[in-house]
Design a protein around this nucleic acid. Structure first.
Length: 209
DNA sequence: CCCTGATTCGC
DNA sequence: GCGAATCAGG
Protein backbone atom coordinates (compact mmCIF):
# COMPACT_ATOMS: atom_id res chain seq x y z
CA UNK A 1 0.00 0.00 0.00
CA UNK A 2 1.12 3.48 -0.71
CA UNK A 3 0.01 6.92 0.29
CA UNK A 4 -2.44 7.85 -2.39
CA UNK A 5 -3.98 11.28 -2.27
CA UNK A 6 -7.14 9.73 -1.09
CA UNK A 7 -5.55 7.82 1.75
CA UNK A 8 -3.68 10.90 2.80
CA UNK A 9 -6.90 12.86 2.83
CA UNK A 10 -8.50 10.22 4.97
CA UNK A 11 -5.52 10.20 7.26
CA UNK A 12 -5.69 13.96 7.67
CA UNK A 13 -9.37 13.81 8.37
CA UNK A 14 -9.23 11.03 10.92
CA UNK A 15 -6.20 12.44 12.64
CA UNK A 16 -7.85 15.78 13.04
CA UNK A 17 -10.90 14.03 14.34
CA UNK A 18 -8.74 12.81 17.13
CA UNK A 19 -8.50 9.16 16.30
CA UNK A 20 -5.38 7.43 17.51
CA UNK A 21 -2.74 6.27 15.10
CA UNK A 22 -3.66 2.65 15.55
CA UNK A 23 -7.32 3.36 15.01
CA UNK A 24 -6.53 5.17 11.80
CA UNK A 25 -4.28 2.36 10.72
CA UNK A 26 -7.13 -0.07 11.24
CA UNK A 27 -9.51 2.08 9.25
CA UNK A 28 -7.15 2.53 6.37
CA UNK A 29 -6.28 -1.10 6.38
CA UNK A 30 -3.10 -2.91 5.43
CA UNK A 31 -0.99 -0.49 7.31
CA UNK A 32 0.59 -0.20 10.72
CA UNK A 33 0.22 2.52 13.24
CA UNK A 34 3.89 3.26 12.82
CA UNK A 35 3.30 4.03 9.19
CA UNK A 36 0.49 6.32 10.18
CA UNK A 37 2.57 8.12 12.75
CA UNK A 38 5.45 8.45 10.36
CA UNK A 39 3.18 9.93 7.74
CA UNK A 40 1.54 12.23 10.23
CA UNK A 41 4.91 13.65 11.09
CA UNK A 42 5.98 14.03 7.55
CA UNK A 43 2.78 15.86 6.84
CA UNK A 44 3.40 18.03 9.82
CA UNK A 45 0.16 17.01 11.41
CA UNK A 46 1.45 16.24 14.84
CA UNK A 47 1.09 18.65 17.66
CA UNK A 48 -1.94 16.93 19.00
CA UNK A 49 -1.83 16.38 22.74
CA UNK A 50 0.43 13.43 23.04
CA UNK A 51 0.28 10.96 25.89
CA UNK A 52 4.03 10.93 25.93
CA UNK A 53 6.15 14.00 26.19
CA UNK A 54 9.70 13.09 25.42
CA UNK A 55 11.71 15.92 26.86
CA UNK A 56 14.03 16.39 23.93
CA UNK A 57 16.94 18.71 24.78
CA UNK A 58 16.24 20.74 21.67
CA UNK A 59 12.53 20.94 22.19
CA UNK A 60 11.45 24.17 23.84
CA UNK A 61 8.10 22.91 24.94
CA UNK A 62 5.89 25.94 24.99
CA UNK A 63 3.07 24.15 26.66
CA UNK A 64 3.86 22.74 30.00
CA UNK A 65 1.28 20.29 31.20
CA UNK A 66 -0.48 21.31 34.32
CA UNK A 67 0.95 18.81 36.68
CA UNK A 68 -1.00 19.43 39.77
CA UNK A 69 0.22 18.05 42.99
CA UNK A 70 -3.03 17.46 44.71
CA UNK A 71 -2.39 16.55 48.26
CA UNK A 72 -5.68 17.78 49.50
CA UNK A 73 -7.80 15.22 51.15
CA UNK A 74 -11.09 14.62 49.40
CA UNK A 75 -13.10 15.82 52.30
CA UNK A 76 -15.57 17.63 50.11
CA UNK A 77 -15.99 14.55 47.98
CA UNK A 78 -16.96 12.45 50.93
CA UNK A 79 -19.69 9.95 50.23
CA UNK A 80 -23.23 11.18 50.15
CA UNK A 81 -23.77 8.90 53.04
CA UNK A 82 -22.92 11.91 55.13
CA UNK A 83 -26.23 13.68 54.89
CA UNK A 84 -25.54 17.39 55.36
CA UNK A 85 -22.22 18.77 54.31
CA UNK A 86 -20.84 18.96 57.77
CA UNK A 87 -17.16 18.33 57.29
CA UNK A 88 -15.93 18.11 60.79
CA UNK A 89 -12.47 16.73 60.42
CA UNK A 90 -11.93 14.56 63.41
CA UNK A 91 -8.59 15.71 64.54
CA UNK A 92 -6.51 13.52 66.69
CA UNK A 93 -5.28 15.14 69.83
CA UNK A 94 -2.80 12.62 70.91
CA UNK A 95 -0.27 14.34 73.09
CA UNK A 96 2.61 12.02 72.45
CA UNK A 97 2.84 10.04 69.27
CA UNK A 98 3.21 6.40 69.90
CA UNK A 99 6.61 5.04 69.13
CA UNK A 100 5.12 2.26 67.08
CA UNK A 101 3.52 4.59 64.61
CA UNK A 102 6.27 5.10 62.14
CA UNK A 103 6.48 1.70 60.49
CA UNK A 104 2.82 1.76 59.76
CA UNK A 105 3.59 1.36 56.09
CA UNK A 106 3.55 -2.39 56.32
CA UNK A 107 -0.09 -2.56 57.18
CA UNK A 108 -1.12 -6.10 57.99
CA UNK A 109 -4.56 -5.73 56.59
CA UNK A 110 -5.63 -5.54 53.01
CA UNK A 111 -6.39 -1.91 52.35
CA UNK A 112 -8.08 -0.08 49.60
CA UNK A 113 -6.05 2.62 47.93
CA UNK A 114 -4.63 4.77 50.61
CA UNK A 115 -2.89 7.19 48.34
CA UNK A 116 -4.69 10.10 46.68
CA UNK A 117 -5.37 8.75 43.22
CA UNK A 118 -7.40 11.15 41.19
CA UNK A 119 -9.74 9.37 38.82
CA UNK A 120 -10.86 6.91 41.41
CA UNK A 121 -12.07 3.73 39.81
CA UNK A 122 -15.64 3.04 40.62
CA UNK A 123 -14.92 0.40 43.18
CA UNK A 124 -11.90 2.01 44.75
CA UNK A 125 -12.67 3.44 48.14
CA UNK A 126 -10.77 6.44 49.30
CA UNK A 127 -9.90 7.63 52.71
CA UNK A 128 -12.31 10.08 54.09
CA UNK A 129 -11.93 12.52 56.89
CA UNK A 130 -15.32 12.67 58.52
CA UNK A 131 -18.00 10.14 59.25
CA UNK A 132 -21.61 10.53 60.27
CA UNK A 133 -21.47 7.81 62.87
CA UNK A 134 -18.86 7.71 65.56
CA UNK A 135 -16.08 5.40 64.63
CA UNK A 136 -14.15 3.25 66.96
CA UNK A 137 -10.88 4.58 65.58
CA UNK A 138 -9.12 1.29 65.39
CA UNK A 139 -5.37 1.32 65.10
CA UNK A 140 -3.14 -1.20 63.48
CA UNK A 141 -2.76 -2.82 66.84
CA UNK A 142 -6.38 -2.92 67.81
CA UNK A 143 -7.95 -3.75 64.46
CA UNK A 144 -9.34 -7.21 64.06
CA UNK A 145 -11.36 -9.31 61.66
CA UNK A 146 -14.69 -8.06 62.86
CA UNK A 147 -13.84 -4.41 62.54
CA UNK A 148 -14.26 -2.12 59.58
CA UNK A 149 -10.90 -1.62 57.93
CA UNK A 150 -11.78 1.54 56.09
CA UNK A 151 -8.77 3.82 56.41
CA UNK A 152 -9.34 7.28 57.76
CA UNK A 153 -6.86 10.05 57.26
CA UNK A 154 -3.39 9.93 55.84
CA UNK A 155 -1.46 6.77 56.65
CA UNK A 156 1.55 8.95 57.27
CA UNK A 157 -0.13 11.09 59.87
CA UNK A 158 -0.09 10.28 63.53
CA UNK A 159 -3.86 10.35 63.67
CA UNK A 160 -4.34 7.76 61.00
CA UNK A 161 -6.75 5.02 61.97
CA UNK A 162 -9.33 2.64 60.70
CA UNK A 163 -13.06 3.06 60.97
CA UNK A 164 -13.29 0.18 63.37
CA UNK A 165 -17.05 -0.16 63.49
CA UNK A 166 -18.56 -3.60 63.33
CA UNK A 167 -17.78 -5.05 59.93
CA UNK A 168 -20.38 -6.76 57.83
CA UNK A 169 -20.00 -10.47 58.12
CA UNK A 170 -17.77 -11.66 55.34
CA UNK A 171 -16.74 -8.15 54.50
CA UNK A 172 -13.87 -5.97 55.57
CA UNK A 173 -16.05 -2.92 55.98
CA UNK A 174 -18.99 -1.75 58.00
CA UNK A 175 -22.27 -1.21 56.23
CA UNK A 176 -21.64 2.37 55.30
CA UNK A 177 -18.17 1.80 53.97
CA UNK A 178 -19.08 -1.40 52.21
CA UNK A 179 -21.66 0.59 50.33
CA UNK A 180 -18.99 3.01 49.23
CA UNK A 181 -16.45 0.36 48.40
CA UNK A 182 -18.75 -1.85 46.41
CA UNK A 183 -20.77 0.56 44.38
CA UNK A 184 -22.99 -0.66 41.63
CA UNK A 185 -21.90 0.32 38.17
CA UNK A 186 -22.81 3.85 37.27
CA UNK A 187 -23.95 4.65 33.77
CA UNK A 188 -20.52 6.05 33.07
CA UNK A 189 -18.55 3.16 34.45
CA UNK A 190 -20.76 0.76 32.57
CA UNK A 191 -20.16 2.77 29.44
CA UNK A 192 -16.45 2.49 29.88
CA UNK A 193 -16.65 -1.21 30.64
CA UNK A 194 -18.66 -1.84 27.51
CA UNK A 195 -16.25 0.23 25.50
CA UNK A 196 -13.31 -1.72 26.84
CA UNK A 197 -14.97 -5.00 26.00
CA UNK A 198 -15.70 -3.80 22.52
CA UNK A 199 -12.10 -2.82 21.98
CA UNK A 200 -10.92 -6.12 23.33
CA UNK A 201 -13.23 -7.97 20.98
CA UNK A 202 -11.97 -6.01 18.01
CA UNK A 203 -8.41 -6.70 18.96
CA UNK A 204 -9.11 -10.39 19.25
CA UNK A 205 -10.89 -10.52 15.92
CA UNK A 206 -8.04 -8.70 14.27
CA UNK A 207 -5.53 -11.09 15.69
CA UNK A 208 -7.43 -14.01 14.25
CA UNK A 209 -7.50 -12.70 10.72
C1' DC B 1 0.71 -6.19 29.47
C1' DC B 2 -2.25 -3.02 27.25
C1' DC B 3 -2.02 1.49 25.10
C1' DT B 4 -0.24 6.29 23.24
C1' DG B 5 2.81 9.39 20.09
C1' DA B 6 7.97 10.50 19.07
C1' DT B 7 12.23 9.47 17.14
C1' DT B 8 15.75 7.16 14.65
C1' DC B 9 17.76 5.34 10.72
C1' DG B 10 18.38 1.82 7.06
C1' DC B 11 16.08 1.20 3.02
C1' DG C 1 9.58 9.30 1.53
C1' DC C 2 8.77 5.25 4.04
C1' DG C 3 8.01 2.56 8.21
C1' DA C 4 10.02 -1.06 11.62
C1' DA C 5 12.28 -0.76 15.68
C1' DT C 6 12.72 1.47 19.53
C1' DC C 7 11.85 4.72 23.08
C1' DA C 8 9.25 6.94 26.71
C1' DG C 9 5.28 7.63 29.20
C1' DG C 10 0.17 6.39 30.85
Amino acid sequence: MSWTDERIATLRDLWEQGLSASQIATKLGNITRNAVIGKVHRLGLSGRPSPVRSERPAAPAADLPVVETVVTKPVAEAPRAAAPAAPRPVRIVSGAPSASDAPAAAAPVAQPRLQPARPAPVAAPRPIAAEPEPMVRATLLSINDRMCKWPVGDPGDAGFHFCGRRAQTGMPYCQDHARIAYQAATPKSREKRDRDRERERERLLRSLL
